[in-house]
Amino acid sequence: MKSAVISVFVMLAMFLFVVKQGQAAVTCKQVDDALAACVPYLTNGGVPSTPCCNGVGELRTSAVTTADRQAACNCVKQAAARIPTIKEDNAATLPAKCHVQVDFPISKNTNCEDIH
């Protein structure tokens, strides 16, 4: 019995070492899905839609660690590169217009490595 318990702890410890602590849990698909409804606002301005603001809120709650925020930032930059008509001013004001504090700027010019 004692050896079985030790084996379980050894396996758990091995699992914890395999999972990297700095690895981001946020994916670009999540970021793209969260911000897809924001494209009309980002390209044309006006008022962001409720689904857009809900997506910004989802982004805020999913990017909790530094690695998550950096990953989300890089995903935002990749998405912005695919849509060249995005206006930088609209991207910068999106969180404030949605009344959501995001812990990194929404911009295609952000150095994501500087985000902590």
Rank of each mutant, 00 (worst) to 15 (best):
Val56Ala: 00
Lys87Trp: 03
Gly45His: 10
Pro40Arg: 05
Ala67Gln: 08
Ala91Glu: 07
Ala80Trp: 02
Gln78Cys: 06
Pro84Phe: 05
Ala72Ser: 14
Thr65Glu: 06
Ala37Arg: 09
Val39Asn: 13
Lys77Asn: 12
Asp68Tyr: 06
Asn44Gly: 08
Ala81Glu: 13
Ala79Met: 14
Glu88Gln: 14
Leu42Asp: 12
Ser62Arg: 06
Pro51Trp: 04
Asp89Trp: 06
Cys52Asn: 02
Gly57Tyr: 01
Glu88Pro: 07
Cys38Trp: 06
Asp89Glu: 15
Ile83Ser: 10
Gly45Asp: 11
Thr66Cys: 03
Asn54Glu: 11
Ala67Ser: 15
Asn90Leu: 12
Ala71Val: 07
Gly46Asp: 09
Pro84Tyr: 04
Tyr41Trp: 11
Ala80Ile: 05
Thr65Pro: 03
Ile83Leu: 15
Tyr41Ala: 12
Thr61Ala: 02
Leu59Ser: 00
Leu59Ala: 00
Lys87Leu: 12
Ala80Val: 07
Leu59Gly: 05
Glu58Asp: 12
Lys87His: 13
Gln70Val: 03
Val56Lys: 01
Ala71Asn: 11
Gly46Val: 04
Ser49Arg: 02
Val39Ala: 12
Ala81Tyr: 11
Pro51Ile: 02
Thr43Met: 10
Gly57Glu: 01
Pro51Asn: 02
Pro51Asp: 07
Ile83Pro: 08
Pro40Trp: 08
Thr43Ile: 12
Ile83Gly: 08
Pro84Leu: 03
Ser49Gln: 02
Gly45Val: 08
Cys38Ala: 07
Asn44Arg: 11
Arg82Glu: 15
Arg82Cys: 03
Leu59His: 02
Glu88Arg: 10
Ala81Asp: 13
Pro48Asp: 04
Arg69Ala: 10
Cys53Asn: 01
Ala63Lys: 07
Cys75Tyr: 06
Ser62Met: 07
Arg69Glu: 11
Asn44Gln: 14
Arg69Val: 04
